[in-house]
Design a protein around this nucleic acid. Structure first.
Lengths: 338, 338
DNA sequence: AGAGCTGACCAAATCGATTTGGCTTTCTCG
DNA sequence: CGAGAAAGCCAAATCGATTTGGTCAGCTCT
């Protein structure tokens, strides 16, 4: 089978030789640049087709300084390799970004989890989408240093960023619980200092002040996953038995909260309402299914990519980018059994 | 002159000049090749660090002929942009491949859906994972022509391929339905000619012959999605009212089958058992949740990537690659309400 | 002393494109 | 007629690395 024929592709030099012109002329002919006699142009194209010539992406990228490639980077450690929750959110964004990027003519790469080595140096990319960077994010710094433009998703306002609408989301959840009759909704958040946490807190506290209930907040370490949510919720419910609703933005915590509630003798959706943020696999397959928020990740990711592409193509930067507002997905955890 | 912003990175030539040696020596020093005096080596390293030098991936890839990049390609149209459940089969595999690839030191790209342009020519990849290629797959052909090695997932035996265990899966499903008391299990398959369909058919028919029931098979066009499954199932149940179980490998069809069964007055999980193949979002969030099969996609994808990397690194090819067998995930659709 | 090594280093070729700057013709117009 | 423009083409520079094929000095062995 395997005859040792030439696996190497025809190069522009081959085409030039075969067509009896210079490499310059081949390049011009194929790219529609410069002045080329139409007869020559046709001849070149014919030869190129015959030799099955395709320009080398490698060489083009070196010469032109552009790789037509974008990446999704995350400053969160091992976003890809992490559990099912991360997988959902990150993955959904990645696919959304990929789809839009491909439509815009870019290739999309999934980046290594940071770990020790900086992924930025290993990647040949024109731009990046950066997921939830911190203010002093190392990846953001690396990108800046290399002069690689990026658009953050849910980044600090000092960066070009597409918003995840944390405020609206949090307000939506509080309002929903209250509307469903919760008198004392509590909040379970992660203890790290990401924007999403802060936003949830603030919106919750603002709503508490406005509506007139006493805020009750529990914290857990995000790396503890479901167990962390379980412990925090258990303690919260013990110390504040009056709490009849829980807003648990992190979905892993939320399933933990469900367990905590059930073990405390509550009926989820009836005398304990629970709502979470990300409407992923976890929220949907929980028993009972969790009310969550449709964040419109598809729209968000495509907005981020389009903005990035706009920057790369040197278009004037749109001032206000407005993705549509998040919408509630009501499920049994706040509406009782069907 | 320390003028304003320098967006361009230090090149190997800058390091060479600054260190007072040749580019060759810099390259050798940094890569641990050739003969370099250790003092010189240290000096070079120091300068490189000071200038924050990083080799250009572009240039390396052109010169070395390797890009340290892999891709997941699919011959199925618009695999990425498909359906609402982005988090489907393709995605799960993609993430699995990506994780392993990254661990092996490769960058992983998500490829454009084929459509008109051949994605292969736009990609700078060392190798590829090809999902469910047909025997005369155009992408496989393109890869071969370019001399890019690939490992198929569920490809024809003429290619290097990692198996999805369709036979076992189909047998598992039939056996399960029979064990749950189905006397006349039917089969709903897609009408295209992919390996998975054929395997399901054969295993089903073999089981029918062995166990002794009359095979009843309905077909639907895969592009019709849930509706196609609904129509096919409705018709099947009308024509063969004795059917008390349905094996519906394609999950979109399966939810359609559920609807068909319910509208025919059946109780899913009781007098009509339904089981599907891919244990994704769809199976899990169906009402009732569908019994499905854990295909071990994680293992499969990492096996495929490891095999590909082995080939790329010129290791001897492992003869038998054996991923673990699929296992059943029993849910209400075959076990009745909890 | 001369052949033969080895250590340390470098100039130039190479990868495959794009782009710059010319060099001829031929045509146009004052 | 001659200046200038434009068409058509090409040689060489360029992108930033790796690799090939040296040179040169110093050392050993006979």
């Amino acid at each position: 089978m395997g005859d040792s024929s030439r696996p190497s592709r025809a190069t522009i030099a081959d085409v030039a030789r075969e067509a009896g012109v210079s490499r310059t002329t081949v390049s011009h002919a194929l790219n529609g640049l410069g002045k080329v006699n139409s007869a020559t142009r046709d001849k070149v194209k014919e030869v190129a087709a015959r030799l099955n010539y395709r320009p080398s992406v490698r060489a083009q990228s070196l010469r032109s300084g552009r790789s037509q490639t974008l990446a999704l980077l995350s400053s969160m450690p091992s976003a890809i390799s992490a559990g099912p929750s991360q997988l959902g959110f990150f993955t959904e964004l990645a696919m959304g970004c990929a789809r839009t990027a491909l439509l815009e003519g870019y290739v999309f790469v999934l980046a290594p989890p940071d770990g020790d080595a900086n992924p930025v140096d290993r990647l040949d990319i024109d731009g990046a989408i950066l997921l939830e960077p911190a203010t002093d994010d190392p990846i953001a710094a690396a990108l800046n240093e290399r002069g690689i433009p990026f658009v953050a998703i849910d980044g600090p306002s000092s960066q070009r960023t597409v918003d995840l609408h944390h405020e609206e989301t949090a307000e939506l959840l509080v309002a929903h619980l209250v509307e469903r009759g919760a008198q004392h909704p509590g909040l379970v958040v992660g203890s790290d200092r990401r924007r999403s946490q802060a936003a949830a807190r603030e919106a919750y506290e603002a709503a508490a002040a406005r509506i007139g209930f006493t805020p009750v907040i529990a914290e857990a370490d995000e790396s503890d996953g479901e167990d962390g949510g379980y412990r925090a919720s258990t303690q919260l419910l013990e110390e504040h038995p009056e709490v009849d609703g829980l807003i648990v933005p992190i979905d892993a915590f939320a399933t933990g909260a469900v367990r905590a509630g059930q073990e405390a003798g509550r009926t989820i959706g009836d005398d304990l309402l629970i709502a979470t943020r990300y409407d992923g696999l976890r929220a949907r397959t929980s028993t009972p299914p969790l009310t969550a928020v449709d964040l419109g990740l598809d729209e968000i990711s495509s907005e981020a990519v389009e903005r990035l592409v706009g920057i790369l193509d040197g278009e004037s930067e749109p001032e206000a980018s407005s993705s549509s507002a998040p919408t509630l997905v009501v499920r049994e955890s706040t509406s009782g059994p069907a």
